[in-house]
Amino acid sequence: EADPRLIESLSQMLSMGFSDEGGWLTRLLQTKNYDIGAALDTIQY
């Protein structure tokens, strides 16, 4: 079963217009401990 923190973070990022095609966003959020800010910083640079 998916981590509730992942579901919450992923749904927030999907609502911002990101896609999780191929699961890349799920993996990114997992490596950033479900921190949306850290994930966005990684995507920006």
Rank of each mutant, 00 (worst) to 15 (best):
M16S: 04
W24T: 04
L40S: 03
G23C: 07
I7V: 14
A38H: 07
S19C: 11
Q12G: 06
D41S: 11
S9F: 09
Q12V: 15
M16A: 05
Q44M: 14
I43V: 05
D3G: 06
L28R: 00
G23A: 05
Q12C: 13
L25Q: 00
E8W: 10
P4S: 11
S19T: 14
S15P: 03
E21N: 12
S19Y: 09
S9C: 13
D20C: 04
Y34D: 01
A38G: 06
N33H: 10
D3M: 05
I7M: 14
L6V: 05
D20F: 02
E1T: 14
D41M: 12
D35W: 04
L10N: 00
L25N: 00
G17F: 02
S9P: 09
D35V: 05
A39K: 01
S19Q: 11
D35H: 06
W24D: 04
D41F: 12
E21R: 08
M16C: 09
S11Y: 10
A39L: 05
L14Q: 09
L10H: 02
T26R: 06
E21Y: 08
L14E: 09
S11M: 12
Y45K: 15
A2C: 13
R27W: 06
I43F: 06
G37C: 14
Y45V: 15
Q30R: 10
S19A: 10
Y34A: 04
T31E: 15
E1H: 12
G17C: 04
E21M: 08
L28N: 00
T31F: 11
N33C: 09
L29F: 01
L25D: 00
R5T: 05
S19W: 07
E1V: 13
T31L: 13
G23Y: 07
S15E: 14
P4V: 10
G17R: 00
L28M: 05
L40G: 01
A38V: 08
L14I: 13
M16G: 03
R27Y: 07
D3Y: 06
R5G: 06
L6S: 04
E1L: 12
M13I: 06
E1G: 13
L14R: 11
M13L: 09
D41V: 12
E1W: 11
Y34S: 04
G22L: 07
Y34E: 02
E21P: 05
G17W: 03
Q44K: 14
M13Q: 01
M16R: 07
L25S: 00
D3A: 05
T42Y: 15
L40F: 06
E8V: 12
L10T: 02
A39E: 01
R5V: 06
R5P: 04
I43W: 04
Y34R: 01
R5S: 06
T26A: 08
L40E: 02
S9G: 10
A39Q: 01
M13P: 00
A38K: 11
I36W: 07
D20V: 02
I7A: 13
N33W: 06
A2H: 12
I7N: 11
G37K: 15
E1Q: 14
A38D: 08
L29G: 00
D35L: 04
L6T: 03
L10F: 04
T31I: 15
D35K: 03
G37F: 13
S19K: 12
D41Y: 10
L14P: 01
L10M: 07
D3F: 06
E21S: 09
F18P: 00
T42F: 15
N33T: 05
F18Q: 01
E8G: 09
L10Q: 01
D20T: 01
F18N: 00
T42H: 15
Y34M: 06
L14A: 11
E21T: 11
L10D: 00
A2M: 14
L25C: 05
T31G: 10
T26H: 04
L40Q: 04
S11Q: 12
Q30F: 07
L40R: 04
D3Q: 06
D3P: 07
Q44W: 15
I43A: 03
A2N: 13
L40K: 04
L14M: 11
D3N: 11
S9D: 01
D35M: 04
L14D: 04
D41P: 02
S11C: 13
M16P: 02
E1K: 14
P4R: 11
R27G: 07
I43N: 03
D20G: 02
S15I: 12
L25G: 00
Q44P: 05
L14H: 09
A38P: 03
E21A: 10
L28Q: 00
M13A: 03
T26D: 03
A39G: 02
Q44G: 11
L25A: 02
D20K: 01
T42Q: 14
T42V: 13
T31V: 12
M16F: 09
S11A: 13
A38M: 09
T26L: 04
L28F: 03
A38R: 07
T26K: 05
I7E: 11
R5E: 08
T31D: 15
I36H: 03
L29N: 00
T31C: 15
M13K: 00
F18S: 00
Q30D: 05
S11V: 10
L25I: 07
R27P: 02
Y45Q: 15
S11T: 11
W24Q: 06
T31R: 14
T42A: 15
T26I: 06
R27Q: 10
I36Q: 03
K32V: 15
D41Q: 14
D3H: 09
T42P: 00
G23L: 08
M13E: 01
R27K: 12
L25Y: 00
P4Y: 10
S15D: 13
L10K: 03
S15N: 13
D3R: 06
A2E: 11
D41T: 12
D41R: 14
S19G: 09
S19M: 09
S19F: 09
E21K: 10
Y34P: 01
L10C: 04
D20Y: 01
G23V: 01
Y45L: 15
L6K: 04
P4T: 12
D41C: 15
F18C: 06
Y45E: 15
Q30K: 13
G37L: 14
I36A: 04
L25W: 00
G22T: 09
S9W: 06
S9T: 11
G22I: 03
Q12E: 12
M13N: 00
Y45C: 15
L28I: 07
G23W: 04
D41A: 14
M13C: 04
L6E: 05
G23E: 05
I43H: 03
G22E: 09
L25P: 00
G23I: 01
Y45P: 15
